[in-house]
Amino acid sequence: MEDDVDRLIEAWQRERPDVDVSPMHVLSRVTRLALHLDRARKEAFADHDLEPSEFDVLSALRRSGEPYQLSPGALVQETLVTSGTMTNRVDRLVSKGLVERLPDPADRRGIQVKLSRSGLAAVDGALDALLAHETDLLAGLSAEEATSLADALRTLSHPFDR
């Protein structure tokens, strides 16, 4: 079974036989799959009136467990963005009624960001839609193949993780 990456690699091998293009067998496919996943994420989130960046914040709050609230600093760590970016994201989510800002009981100067009921419904709906898209993307793999691929990708991405 030949794909676009095979054709791309053949062309490079023909034009540049002096270089080893073997990394492209894996990484060009990962790049193309990432593009498909990005489209699926945008579709799933758009159906719930969310941007991917908004979903990231809402999902960090949802994963934190009840009462679904975190400090802005914890949200920055969870989403790997700057504090200024997080402030803008929280502002947008507050204006959409998906989160609320509450005083931090442990720090009079601090705040907590809490998932609202509509935020909980939005993030749960978006997650369900995302998982349906992701399941479709992986439909061509057996359970064993998916596990093997996940293990290989974990090994490959480990040096980049925190």
Rank of each mutant, 00 (worst) to 15 (best):
S71G: 13
P67Q: 06
E54Y: 07
V81G: 00
T155G: 11
S142F: 08
R7V: 07
L37Y: 12
T155V: 14
A152M: 05
V123M: 03
L131E: 15
V26C: 13
H25W: 06
P52N: 04
T82N: 04
E2T: 08
E51H: 15
R162Q: 04
R92D: 15
E43L: 06
L75Q: 04
V76Q: 09
A34L: 15
D56P: 03
L35I: 10
S28A: 15
D136W: 04
T82D: 10
D4S: 08
R63Q: 10
I111W: 00
L120T: 07
R39C: 06
L37D: 05
A46I: 03
V76R: 08
L102I: 02
A11Y: 02
L102C: 04
L93I: 06
M86L: 08
D128I: 13
V30K: 09
R108A: 15
R16V: 13
E78F: 09
V99W: 02
W12P: 00
H36D: 12
A74D: 15
A74L: 12
V57W: 03
R101Q: 07
R41F: 12
A106C: 01
P17D: 11
R154D: 15
V76I: 06
S59Q: 04
L61V: 07
P159K: 07
E43G: 11
A129T: 09
L149R: 13
L138S: 15
P103V: 09
L70Q: 10
G125F: 03
M86C: 03
R14V: 05
D56I: 01
M24L: 15
Y68F: 14
T79G: 14
S118I: 05
R109P: 01
V99F: 01
K96E: 13
R101P: 06
A44K: 03
A106K: 10
V57D: 09
T135C: 02
G65W: 11
F160K: 01
A40R: 11
S53M: 04
L70S: 05
T82P: 02
T79W: 09
A126L: 02
P103T: 13
R16L: 13
S118Q: 14
Q112L: 14
H36K: 13
S142C: 10
D56E: 07
L80K: 12
D3H: 10
R16N: 07
L138F: 04
E134L: 07
A46W: 13
T82C: 10
L153R: 04
E144F: 14
M1Q: 06
L130W: 09
V5S: 02
R29A: 08
M1V: 08
V94M: 08
V81H: 03
R39Q: 11
P17K: 05
L141K: 05
Q69M: 14
T82A: 12
P17W: 11
L156H: 05
I9L: 10
F160N: 13
E66P: 12
S64W: 07
L115F: 12
D47C: 09
A44G: 11
V19G: 00
S116T: 15
L93Y: 03
P72T: 06
L93E: 03
D56N: 14
I111Q: 06
D38R: 10
F160R: 12
A121S: 05
G84M: 09
T87S: 08
S28P: 01
A60E: 04
S148C: 01
T87H: 10
P103C: 02
R29I: 08
L70V: 03
L50F: 03
A11K: 10
H158I: 01
H158Y: 04
A139H: 00
E145I: 02
L33Q: 11
E54I: 01
E2L: 14
